[in-house]
Nucleic acid binder design. Structure first.
Lengths: 259, 259
DNA sequence: CGTTGATTTGATGCCATTCAACTGTTGTGG
DNA sequence: CCACAACAGTTGAATGGCATCAAATCAACG
């Protein structure tokens, strides 16, 4: 639940060139030679693949501090689009690997970044294995909460559109819209306007020990150790509980009534 | 379409300990400390997570030469189960990183393995973004064809059960069964027995230039360069074409009639 | 203030799941 | 080698959830 802002090692920074891209522009194309990596300085980027009939698949979102283009391939097999106006630091792979072979700290950092990206992909993958739309959206929201910069107003803004979310989760915009509305109806989130959905994040503040108390006697599940709590929190039910912030347990499990 | 058998660097091998696990045994548990990586010597392993109500999610299959446990975390967030009897080389992460910091070749190898795993996860992820069961299964089969060891009998054996496939694709065994049968009916594959599904892989032999000719005039799509062909082959339609090996184009696109 | 694009809402159909019964395969012991 | 049990896979009918198509509503921008 900690905010990871593991940016690129300072000694790398001079190697890169800072560039700006306007909203909706293409940063890399699918068939570009994969000889650069990109660190997000500000804004939001998505990695995506275009299919026929206008279908699009989004394989990941990238926020400030994230790095994309680390995968091992001659050509990118995905494109990168700017969701908002973005500033990125472009770094030649060649320069990076050269630096890594002389500086051990850089090599460690590079491996750590790649491994972190691997963990992210794994999480996304597991959320896509859920058969229900609600589970996928809950996973997505929790992920966004954990990665977003903390704000004092207990709100978290999502920069991406419903279409982006749909393409990221393998759903349609209509299903995303309906599911979000249902979550709002049940008190888990609040939707404010189109372009920046917001949701409560009081539970980000809550430390593990406090949460243990709150979980007392829920549905017969009652994690007693912090370890058990961790395990519970990564499960679909646990994530749902996080999202609902334990405030409306009575209505928990209640399904949409479609009228 | 090449068979990647990028095993661990020879200089690492003395560090590891070789171990055997019987079929269906657990190699690592979800809450184990993530301080080892595992190289498959022989057999098949899956990384999975168990959910309540007996639900299971499989995040990846690992074949000889593959390495798992590379993700960056204190604890594994997935378990590893032996699909068949397996032999693995167990390597302490600590020893590996120590070796990597002194030997540049090892460091490169470690990064390459992690980046390859990242690419794999990306591919799996993209196949899960397909809404239809058939597309997911076609992606899965193509992936298996590309990773399987080449055999002279033009057949490829899949060691995993229908349940494994279902848990890997986020489907049910019934849907997997029905879709596979439908693919067989349409001439794409042949199912032989339970424990080892087999399918034709003549097209593995075909080089790109030959395939270009075969693609002439299909559905108005006619890739002219090798680059275009590559792009076509990674799309759902292209993978379907690969699977059908262009032998039954007349029946291509035909759907199951459910009776 | 009208236009454009994004989102929501509604009605319908299809496909995957579910539950259930059945069939085929594998493995074991007589 | 056969009989049997235990398991793995297939097949069928009914349900439900998501996609699809269509229309209405809302926000942003000039």
């Amino acid at each position: 639940m900690s905010i990871q802002t593991q940016s690129i090692h300072p000694s790398i920074q001079p190697v890169g060139i800072v560039r700006s891209y306007p909203r909706k522009s293409e940063i890399v194309r699918e068939d570009d030679a994969a000889d650069h990596v990109y660190e997000i300085v500000s804004g939001t980027v998505c990695a995506c693949r275009m299919l026929r009939e206008g279908r699009r698949q989004i394989s990941g979102f990238y926020f400030p501090g994230d790095v994309f283009g680390l995968e091992n391939a001659k050509k990118y097999n995905v494109a990168a689009q700017a969701i908002t106006n973005v500033v990125v630091r472009v770094i030649k792979k060649q320069a990076l690997t050269a630096l890594a072979s002389s500086d051990r700290a850089v090599a460690d950092q590079l491996l750590a970044l790649t491994a972190r990206e691997l963990t992210r992909k794994q999480d996304h993958l597991l959320s896509l294995l859920s058969t229900t739309a609600e589970e996928r959206i809950i996973c997505f929201l929790i992920d966004m909460v954990q990665r977003a910069s903390p704000r004092e107003d207990h709100l978290i803004a999502l920069p991406m559109s419903r279409l982006d979310i749909a393409d990221y989760l393998g759903l349609t915009i209509e299903t995303v819209s309906r599911t979000l509305w249902d979550l709002e109806r049940r008190g888990a989130i609040k939707i404010k306007g189109y372009h920046s959905i917001v949701l409560r994040n009081q539970f980000v503040e809550g430390r593990a020990e406090e949460m243990l108390d709150l979980f007392e006697g829920i549905k017969g599940q009652r994690p007693k150790t912090e370890e058990e709590l961790d395990k519970w929190l990564v499960s679909p039910e646990g994530k749902a509980a996080m999202l609902f912030n334990l405030t409306s347990l009575s209505r928990w499990g209640e399904r949409a009534r479609h009228s």
